[in-house]
Amino acid sequence: MTPILSKPDRKSATPLSARPEHSAESPVSIHALTVAYHRKPVVWDVDYDAPPQSLVAIVGPNGAGKSTIIKACLGLAPKAAGRVEFWGQPYRAVRKRIGYVPQRESVDWDFPVSALDVVAMGRYGKIGWCKPVSRQHRAAAMECIDRVGLADYASRQISQLSGGQQQRVFLARALAQEADLYFMDEPFAGVDAATERAIVQVLRELKAGGATVIVVHHDLQTVAEYFDEVMLLNMRVVAEGPVSDTFTQDNLVKTYGGRLTLLAEAAEAVARAERGG
């Protein structure tokens, strides 16, 4: 399985020693990352170290480049400059330890597969070339679908699931990867209350098991409740760090600029963070 995509771009890499804040302990170290589509930069010069065993939210307005950062980390978007390391190693060396939940809209849900088939895709990396899904891997997939509360829906064709259930299928597929680091792109977008509870539950379990989860998140009101760390992003990193220090009204104003309706929400969210964070 030699990757022929995404050769790491080392042109502008600064040596590790020159940036003492980066540590080999960190599950993800983003070094001076810039991403451009069609020559227009989407994300500028991002530096970030995720602490081990933490739940990290990437928050920012539409078009801030939240998904782009995740995609660049995973080699799905071209890096114009900078590099990303995982536990001090390049992506290729550790991809078996990394799980991914893409945006729900990124696939065609009329595809002729069952929910369990999709979850079993999380095992394909472990199964390897040309071999069918063995009973043991099927059982593992079944366990994962059960963890998100969809055991009864395992044999449904995926278009017969509600949006929230589809989101949980994607989550279960990532669980089937048995990773130490997860990237999730808007897992809470457009889901029902039951799904939101199920996802939060899984996030907490993953953290308890030692994993780190990076989540693109759009709901400012729940940031303080669900996450330990936050990266406030608007094409560049406005602020990053523990939610209690970072998720302040000041920083939110800088991130969202003059969007008044959002500011009102932000004020409320900040009040919550200060209460209990």
Partner: peptide
């Protein structure tokens, strides 16, 4: 027949395939 699983994965979700390390282009 031999590559049913690989084809299914790439047809359904090529990004996920790439993240798992499958050579999507190949």
């Amino acid at each position: 027949v031999a590559l049913l699983k690989e084809f299914a994965l790439v047809c359904f979700d090529e990004d996920f395939a790439a993240v798992q390390g499958w050579p999507v282009t190949f």
